[in-house]
Design a binder for these strands. Structure first.
Length: 439
RNA sequence: CGGGGAGUAGCGCAGUCUGGUAGCGUACCUGCUUUGGGAGCAGGGGGUCGCGAGUUCGAAUCUCGCCUUCCCGACCA
């Protein structure tokens, strides 16, 4: 992409409404614009990041055999009256009426809809287990939206649902999802610690929140220092080996980690220097809640013994749009964002220091073509601007690599290659830079 | 929902106390000179001063009501 043709409205100064670093940087880097409290438009650069995160989440869901579908944003009130949550959910649920005066709502989550889908077509334990998910916009009319996209009212969430005939197999579904979450966050280049969590209004008795440690997080959390060095990549774990997977999950969870609601200083096994008490950003939450929805909504299946039983369910969320902010909170410096490779909107920024200079233009066009031919996502800054602004913008948007081409280096046949994260700059031939980036 | 800020040019702000018809920086447009970490000079465009009432000869400024937005707290991916 040529920057001269890209919509990238960067800001030199921070808009007054943005307080935390991720919100400031997202506005300055031209990723989002606020439309209303907690409601944002995603501009091209931000949308690319959102899509990359979404795709990694999708791939890891697919990898455990979870089926993607798509449910609507607008739901009828009747379903929620069946589950009893139409009253329980309170003012956080945005309620609307259609032209026929029917009560509708903008979905804050989808347990009711998925249960309805399930009960209409599944009758036998032989059709189980089932794992279904979608990635869809949710609306929760938060009392106080804040922190940019980290607590928006409208947000993109992956929500998955499991259906099993008994607790043991439901537990296996939970474990598979646990593994998928570890792999997802690991691929996103961030450490998300699974912590024993409160189940809140969704209900249930088995629940973990995946928390990224950050001072700006909204939750108080407590965990053993051992978590910092723990391998959470989930590599080599066989998701079809029930016992092996269960053992892996138990081993992974053996060190203490709890959110404030579940933390009890009196019984906590760690203390002193071994304990980290800080704040965190909740980026994922997994629940097993058994028959909480299947029973009132009549989602039953026939078991092997011919008896009808309510299906055992779990739900599993990842805040996709929140992750964009959370990743920035976890990875930035005073000059701007530093994207993990996996989610960077482009892998390399190509800076033409002297647009309009024949030699520079030719060298940059050549480099641009070669990078594209090598399958590398490149953002080419061909704008007619002074060098300082280009450097500043490129640092701000945080692409992992920068290739700087100017008249001085060009005279000696070299370009400058900069690593955004380390700040290291080397002067090499373009071919050497290309090799380094491709490595 | 309780407490506390803020709404003046795209963005950052001054002006409000003490009423007199709106300004600075930056960004934007034109020209010239520049060009390796946010250039210089000259010229130029851009404002329902959040909205509505009221007081006054006259309101960004005073009074009342409302709206929006941000921060802290209680709740949540």
């Amino acid at each position: 992409m040529r920057l001269s043709q890209f919509f990238l409205p960067t800001l030199k100064e921070t808009p007054a409404e943005a307080q935390i670093v991720s919100h400031r940087l997202m506005l300055r880097a031209g990723m989002v614009r606020q439309l209303s409290a907690g409601i944002y438009s995603w501009l091209p650069l931000g949308y690319r990041v959102l899509k990359k995160i979404e795709q990694i989440v999708r791939e890891e869901q697919n990898a455990i055999g979870c089926n993607e579908l798509l449910m609507p944003t607008i739901q009828p009130a009747e379903l929620w009256q069946e589950s009893g949550r139409y009253e329980d959910y309170g003012l956080e649920m945005l309620r609307i009426t259609d032209r026929h005066d029917r009560n509708m709502l903008f979905g804050p989550t989808n347990e009711e809809v998925i249960t309805d889908i399930f009960r209409k077509d599944v009758r036998s334990y032989k059709q189980l287990p089932q794992l279904l998910y979608h990635i869809q916009w949710k609306f929760r009319d938060e009392i106080r939206p804040r922190f940019g996209v980290m607590r928006g009212r409208e947000f993109l969430m992956k929500d998955a649902y499991s259906f099993d005939v008994d607790y043991e197999s439901a537990r296996h579904a939970y474990n598979k999802m646990f593994l998928a979450y570890c792999r997802t966050f690991s691929r996103l280049g961030v450490k998300a610690i699974p912590m024993v969590a409160d189940t809140g209004p969704i209900g249930g008795d088995l629940s973990h929140e995946f928390i990224i440690l950050a001072e700006t997080g909204e939750s108080e959390v407590f965990c053993d220092r051992k978590w910092l060095d723990k391998d959470l990549t989930g590599k080599g774990v066989d998701l079809n080996d029930r016992t092996g997977l269960e053992n892996w999950v138990q081993t992974t969870l053996e060190d203490y980690a709890a959110t404030e609601e579940k933390h009890d200083p009196a019984t906590c096994p760690v203390s002193g220097d071994d304990m980290i008490a800080t704040r965190g950003i909740e980026v994922g939450h997994i629940f097993h809640f058994g028959a909480k929805y299947s029973e009132p909504m009549g989602a039953n299946v026939l078991g092997p013994d011919g008896k009808e039983v309510p299906v055992m369910m779990g739900s599993y969320g990842i805040g996709v749009s929140r992750l964009v902010g959370a990743l920035i909170e976890a990875s930035h410096d005073e000059n701007g964002i530093i994207w993990p490779d996996a989610v960077a909107p482009y892998k390399v920024g190509l800076i033409n220091l002297r647009t309009g200079d024949d030699a520079c233009d030719a060298a940059c066009e050549d480099a641009y073509g070669k990078l594209q031919a090598a399958g590398i996502e490149v953002l080419y800054d061909d704008r007619d601007m002074r060098a300082g602004g280009k450097f500043a913008d490129m640092d701000l948007i945080g692409l992992p690599w920068q290739i700087v081409i100017g008249p001085k280096g060009l005279a000696n046949g070299i370009v400058e290659l900069k690593n955004r994260r380390s700040g290291e700059r080397v002067e090499v031939t373009f071919e050497a830079a290309l090799n380094q980036i491709s490595a």
